[in-house]
């Protein structure tokens, strides 16, 4: 098994990918594709206790801690939010909890797209990141 790339390395790959796209619409289109390509979440896991609070759309996260790493599956009924979830999935899923906790995720700004949507309270990006970091902290406490 190859060593998983670090959060920073994956962030850079995403930045490079998004930079290839000319305009906002293409960036969103790509984001939606990322969401559509993400592994499906088991529908029985989409329960109210797995909903992330603070989003205009429904977002579910099922998070586990295994050998110090954060593992999760997630989904949203919004295709845009699901795209954001897919980016979080690519960067943070399977990473050491300590790294997740330390990640500053400022690459969201660099993507260009995110400078725009990360400031909207309604999409819950802040809530989702907060939710994952809290799970990472609990994972470290164990």
């Amino acid at each position: 098994m190859t060593e998983k790339a670090t959060i920073k390395e994956i962030e850079q790959e995403l930045i490079d990918d998004f930079n290839l796209l000319d305009n906002w619409e293409e960036k969103y289109e790509y984001l939606i594709e990322l969401g559509q390509d993400m592994p499906r979440m088991d529908p029985t896991l989409k329960t109210d206790d797995r909903l992330v609070q603070g989003c205009q759309s429904s977002v579910w996260f099922d998070i586990h801690c295994q050998e110090g790493r954060l593992l999760f599956s997630a989904d949203s009924d919004s295709v845009v939010v699901k795209g954001m979830v897919a980016v979080l999935n690519q960067t943070l899923n399977g990473q050491p909890a300590e790294d997740v906790l330390q990640a500053n995720l400022d690459f969201f700004e660099t993507l260009g797209l995110w400078r725009h949507i990360s400031s909207q309270r309604s999409n819950g990006l802040t809530a989702m990141v907060g939710h994952l970091k809290q799970a990472a902290a609990e994972c470290l406490d164990k």
Binding site: N23, E25, D77, V80, S122
Partner: peptide, 19 residues
């Protein structure tokens, strides 16, 4: 989703409200 429609219309410079 209304949220998606709003965000994607905004990407085309169109301001509407959703929610």
């Amino acid at each position: 989703q209304h949220y998606d429609m709003g965000v994607l219309l905004d990407a085309r410079g169109i301001a509407v409200r959703t929610g």
